[in-house]
Design a protein around this nucleic acid. Structure first.
Lengths: 244, 244
DNA sequence: TAGTGGTCTAGACCACCCT
DNA sequence: GGGTGGTCTAGACCACTAC
């Protein structure tokens, strides 16, 4: 009868409309119902509908033409891939159509070196935890990622860490904190014997290198990540909508 | 010709608050005035203020804590850089602190090859225009970009093209159209003699390769771009805010 | 002209955080 | 308890596009 109020209306509406778009109830490239029609059908205010549509537009999922209507992006499939951000590697692998698998290569504690201390805003030689993991797409290794973080953030013993969790779940579970934003520098590099040869490709093969810093809501750096990325298997794709 | 309409309130508010944030009137990491205070001071509704703050939050410029307040991101400086998107190379160069300069290397018409025809959704051998440009940061070459597009989109003669314009201005001026969104695939590659050697670095130097497709509002592909990017000079940095 | 999205308002109640 | 952001409403007018 009435819509449940357990979760916010905007979220419910967003979930519903997203489903309709991905299930082609509103086909790619076609015009979808007007704001007023949606508001009437879902028994919510036009403002609530607009909040959701604005978010979709900023993701590039839909496009809106004043005086005309709202259209579903013809290339939804490609956008689907990057939904969730480029730094959630498991989701990225799924988005590329593979089944993700994480293998923990090493998990050790050691003192921080200069650059780590600087980025993580801790003292030189403070204890940090370094976790190296190999992400596989259908058993094929595609990303080699090393994350380091201050040991002081850990609420549990290092041995208790579950290396299969995505990074934001690790923060949530073991730090009792939340990732608020990520700053990623994208570079290119060559596969070196020391780290990548056995994992990926022959020496000298070009790889993408991601240097990521994860921050909490109060701007504290939580994790410093360095990842090597085989783009021949996994597409690193961004969709950017113009303006606002 | 001047447009009559006064600028929308949300845009005015957005511009003002952005200035205050970048000029440190609201210092990085500090709490800024509440929504109600801002609404009162600027004599607009709280909804209008919230629309602007929501946009800022999605950019990672501010963070909001329910029951507490709104905080300016401590790392505003770094976020500044990517504001405007990663595909406006002139802005990107400016964001890195350099003065941008564009040099047109070649501008020719020719028939489309297979992949170009497919991506641009035209027939094989249809006429296209290929424009190669070198972007410099303080006279140092950093990006080599080739853009191809169907000749049929051009409203003027090829000779009239101004190679100094950013890509979205070219679309606006010569296509009488608008870029609505961009799909970018990011790859790594090695500098080759044929294209990059004289422009960038020694052969075998790792470069970023961007494959971009620019779309109009009605989902027509406008331009296919292939760019080689020297990340040692120019940082390719992304900021992603977590969920919402 | 009818209908669309774009802008904007005033006010209500809620969930949450601080002291 | 008092203030903050989060959610939501009902309604108004404007700018634009298709017909």
């Amino acid at each position: 009868m009435q819509i449940q109020r357990s979760t916010p209306l905007v979220n419910q509406v967003a979930t519903l409309l997203r489903q309709r778009i991905y299930s082609r109830t509103y086909p790619p490239g076609e015009r979808m119902p007007s704001e007023s029609e949606l508001a009437q059908e879902l028994k919510v205010s036009r403002t609530t509908v607009r909040t959701v549509l604005a978010k979709f537009a900023s993701e590039g999922l839909i496009f809106r033409k004043q005086g005309d209507g709202t259209y579903v992006n013809k290339h939804v499939r490609e956008i689907d891939m990057q939904y969730g951000g480029i730094w959630d590697f498991s989701k990225l692998i799924q988005g590329n159509g593979y089944h993700p698998h994480i293998q923990t290569v090493s998990l050790v504690g050691r003192p921080a070196v200069k650059e780590e201390a600087k980025v993580l805003e801790i003292d030189l030689m403070d204890n940090i935890v370094s976790m190296s993991r190999l992400f596989c797409a259908d058993e094929q290794p595609v990303i080699y990622a090393t994350n380091v973080f201050p040991k002081s953030l850990l609420m549990v013993d290092v041995a208790e860490l579950d290396g299969n969790l995505p990074i934001h779940m690790i923060v949530q579970t073991y730090f009792e904190d939340q990732i608020a934003y990520v700053v990623s520098d994208i570079e290119a590099t060559l596969a070196e014997e020391s780290t990548q040869k056995t994992l990926y490709r022959e020496r000298g093969f070009p790889l993408l290198k991601l240097r990521e810093t994860f921050y909490s809501q109060d701007h504290r750096p939580l994790i410093l990540g360095t990842s090597y990325f085989d783009f021949t298997v996994l597409k690193l794709r961004l969709v950017q909508a113009w303006g606002k």
